[in-house]
Write a protein that binds this DNA or RNA. Structure first.
Lengths: 229, 229
DNA sequence: GCCCAATCGTGTCAAAACAACACAATAATT
DNA sequence: AATTATTGTGTTGTTTTGACACGATTGGGC
């Protein structure tokens, strides 16, 4: 059987790719050297193929720009206003990704005209991509407050002060160093590697790594946040 | 200009419609008297029209079954596995809605073969609709813990014990009556109507209504939940 | 070699939030 | 009038939070 509907539309995927350079949040954006909107900035995107699951398509598109696989990626929302793309009606399913900025294939990204730009000082993007970024940031803030998601943006070994700088970048507000440390350590998600950060210019901070076992277990344990309502 | 892609697909919308009868959570489901999967149970759905924004389409589909407008509705997620619909590739953008079960047009729903079924004891649904419901429940639990969203499922005037029964249904676990009441009242979101619930068979509970002004203000104030991370 | 400045790690303490629990008030039923 | 089910409010000890202080470590300048 077949549906008797002629309203088929293009389905695209756009990726909001977050990175952290130790100082601020960054976005991997495209300086378009192709139409439409050539010369302007946009998110990395592409069309869904006929034989491709949605998530597979999104991962393909991320891989085409970064060379990465096994990245933290989450569906954000679908944007489907009639005129969001002036060329032709296109429904865009957005994903956001958190990557370790030092692990991606920088040459590949550059060959696709990808650049890491500051989230706070990013240029205006095409179509409704600004709204997508806004929503992704909101979701990141939401999620990072309840789930141990921030680690995806850091290298394998990291210090608590580094983690704090990341959270301060995410929420754009300062935290008390002592309370932050206490709260993080109380989750028992970190394992002391015994090493210290050799890049430190003063007292060297202890390097931790994620306790993968606890991480997997606790990730969806958010319901503990509300025994009574 | 036009895109040179021939991979256009059908875009559908499916609605997960929650209701609360005072005892348990209900879903408004369709007993299909049309193909495909005639005779089986499914969510309410439909195809997106060419001239229709995504949200507009979802609201139209909800309206076709319930007669309601201005309903609490939120985009859930988009499902796009290649073979999720055996008839033809269809990408489904899911929405979930919270409605006051006593306000919808019951005759209209019945004429479309819509029935309110217990969430916990619902039948198996077609395609990937079970996964959609699972995800919607998870999202509802998530959201209701942080935002004052439960009121959407109750009548305009309601008692605190009613509200508690709702939350117990959502989280499928009992709460302490005294702590619950204290916590709800501390939000200052409820206004005492001065009336009492005349249906009570013993001591009659006080009827409250939402303080709309505070409700609008506080709805997105969740960031207060984490001054320090 | 010693002091200085910057950063890191841990500790204290009062206030607020939470969880467990007790008791009195109300209304229909007997 | 006693009984039973339910509602409203209060108490108390424990845990968590937020604000803040101090000592330890490291590299660089003198």
């Amino acid at each position: 059987m077949e549906y008797l509907v002629e309203n088929r539309v293009l389905v695209a995927t756009d990726c909001i790719i977050f990175g952290f350079d130790g100082e601020e949040l960054k976005l991997l954006l495209i300086k378009r050297n192709f139409e439409p909107e050539k010369g302007k900035w946009s998110l990395m995107g592409g069309f869904l193929r006929a034989d491709e699951d949605l998530e597979v398509g999104a991962k393909r598109i991320l891989h085409e720009l970064t060379g990465l696989e096994n990245v933290y990626m989450e569906q954000l929302q679908t944007f489907g206003e009639v005129n969001r793309d002036p060329a032709e009606r296109t429904v865009s399913v957005c994903f956001f990704a958190l990557i370790n900025i030092h692990e991606h294939d920088a040459e590949l990204a550059r060959s696709r005209n990808g650049y890491w730009l500051s989230l706070k000082e990013r240029p205006k993007l095409i179509f409704d991509h600004d709204r997508m970024v806004e929503l992704a940031l909101q979701r990141l803030r939401y999620k990072a407050a309840l789930h141990p998601i921030g680690f995806e943006l850091l290298p394998e070994k990291f210090t608590i002060p580094q983690l704090q700088r990341l959270y301060e970048a995410i929420y754009d507000s300062p935290f008390d160093r002592r309370n932050f440390s206490r709260k993080i350590l109380s989750t028992k998600l970190l394992k002391d590697t015994g090493e210290k950060n050799e890049h430190g210019v003063t007292k060297k901070a202890v390097l931790y790594r994620l306790d993968q076992e606890r991480y997997q277990k606790q990730f969806n344990a958010f319901l503990h946040f509300m025994s009574d309502f």
